[in-house]
Nucleic acid binder design. Structure first.
Lengths: 211, 211, 211, 211
DNA sequence: CATGAATGAGGGTTCATTCAT
DNA sequence: AATGAATGAACCCTCATTCAT
């Protein structure tokens, strides 16, 4: 709000960068402050602890992500469109701030630190679950699937793609990001199985998959 | 060599239990030793460091998992059968030792500690990728999908289910485990979309995908 | 910067005192901090490790000593005067800070810790060697002596006197220190042998040393 | 006494080698045992502790050294001959077992560990002191020198030459060893000062030694 | 706001020593 | 005599956090 830099934001961005580079545990408070170009004592003016910094990063990002997903849910669009848009938003977040995603993927999601946040993470799963459930109710998605489990699968698929980008190699360009969103939507909605192939070996008779 | 317990194994099992309960970082070496009922110094007879214990847990388990997945690949069965079996093995591992899975999921998979092991983790992805690729070559899987990305989706889906069990709630019984394996296979192979519904968003006759 | 004590210096002096009393190895970091009246963590603000404290003690002292010896060399005084002055400076250092000498003698000089410092110690030997060499060139010192070896003898003689003071008994007063400096100069320059006695038994005929 | 190797001696020799290589403190009991090719527990059959091994090395060597020096003293030879012989014995010991000398020089002489042995080390100084004193009584050595101090100088000179060999470079051959013994004898008995040069700064007719 | 000196709980690791076999 | 698994005291160091300035 002042003409000068906002030190709080400065520290938060520095933390994202440092945590992304070295991991939360290996990052010292001094590293973050140094990256921000301030004395490390200042961090304690804005945050109660090192962990609170991580929590703040998580919560701010997660809130935005949740809002976006809720917005998608609110459109009432067909279920598969909703899935597609969620994938586009989640995977598209990479472009906005890869370091941030790195931190979220590596440190937050299943960290013992922030297992209080399960509630907030749970809201994301809840939303995905509702999307699936409504899809089933509307006859778009198959009714035999367990919605919670499907939500996990959706979430896991997207997270792992991001993880692949984090760990193995980042996407070359925006096109690859878009392609990934399209691919994951296809797999999750339509399956790996080719159109002409039998769609479910377990079913006794399914003659008319592609007639 | 003795009729008594193998202290090395004892320590490893104790570490799995303790790491699962408190997390690797919060677990002290003394906790592990106490759980094993030995002096903590003994841990350093069998392992070079606390971290080496975690690495050993990872490597031993991962080797077994890889072997199983390689075995499935070697059968030359239809691609979707292979996917189903992989899901059964991976998710079935929960029953064998939930604590072990807990540790693997939470500490190892994307921990900065063990990112040297990427090679070994990469072998798993390679195998999944090959399964997809062969499925495409055989006309079973759709050729438009990027195999590496599909491998990530497969892996992420399974991992997230295990994570859900770790974080949210464990499966009630063996049946739920089996059901999960079946569900994930269905989703990944056949998609979320119901049989009667339009299978691909790319098709012309889908007017209502408004933004 | 403050009117108060310099904690770094405080720690260094405390370390000298403690190392002198208990020896480096037997001294715990906490002992040094306690002697300095500060928390032991503070030691790691100013020094990287316990060993670095010892190194700092060594280097600071050694630098001062070297400077003094270089100053003596620079005077261009007759060689034996230079030797006398060096002895006076080296042995006189006892009076300034016996504990410091104790530490240097016992811990540093030939400690495996600080054998990287050989370079700096070597400079002292080099200086002594040059003094001998110039003495020979000026016809003051006998040309048959190996200068490096003579430097070792000079150094060893002085060091052992200090060691005697450290181990057996300290000098009673300043006079004893001055007497020691005079004695060592006499021995090294003029020899143990009395004026009337034959100066070198090895020489075939040297009847007239003092006729 | 048995046809087999004497394990005690084996351990002692191994300790000398290991201590020489890594220093006493950095050498682990296991290193010594490994060098000896036995289990480390065996060390405790022959010695009460790691320190006792060092003490034993010291004592055995020192006893031999003392005996040799006492033998020289007992000959009643002229003082400077005794000094020459002592130098020859002490410096000659290098050839017999450089590692042993290394250990004695670095670990024992002024180690806090073995300061109980001052008594035995003191005997060596006592002997040197007696040699000087008798030389003075016989009119061979100048009476103005403090005998104890002269003993320290003698000892220090020899020790430092050995140290130079340990730290800087070992003697190239036996001849260099012999030459060193001759040099040190010359310096200590006859002084650095050349025959024609003024021998004593204390003499009245030396006006120009301004401070 | 801002600094960084000061604190000290906490934990991993070493390694001499013991002792059952 | 010989082994090496087992023990645990000892200690260095890290680093989040506090607080006087």
């Amino acid at each position: 709000m002042n003409g000068q830099v906002n030190k709080r934001r400065l520290l938060l961005d520095a933390a994202i960068k440092v945590f992304a580079r070295k991991g939360y545990h290996a990052s010292r408070v001094g590293d973050v402050a140094q990256e921000a170009g301030v004395a490390y004592g200042l961090l304690y003016h804005y945050f109660g602890s090192k962990e609170e910094v991580l929590e703040t990063i998580f919560r701010e990002t997660w809130a935005a992500m949740l809002e976006a997903v809720h917005g998608i849910e609110a459109t009432g669009a067909p279920a598969r469109d909703q899935v597609r848009k969620v994938a586009a938003v989640v995977l598209g977040s990479w472009k906005l701030n890869p370091d941030l995603i790195r931190v979220l993927i590596r440190e937050v999601t299943r960290s013992p630190h922030i297992q209080q946040e399960i509630e907030e993470i749970g809201q994301a799963f809840d939303t995905l679950e509702r999307i699936v459930r409504r899809g089933q109710a509307a006859g778009e998605f198959r009714p035999t699937l367990e919605p919670r489990l499907a939500a996990w699968v959706l979430y896991g698929a997207m997270e792992e793609i991001l993880t692949g980008w984090v760990i193995e190699r980042p996407p070359a360009d925006d096109e690859e990001v878009a392609l990934a969103a399209q691919n994951v939507t296809e797999i999750l909605c339509d399956g790996l199985v080719a159109d002409g192939a039998p769609r479910d070996a377990g079913r006794p008779a399914e003659p008319s998959v592609a007639d």
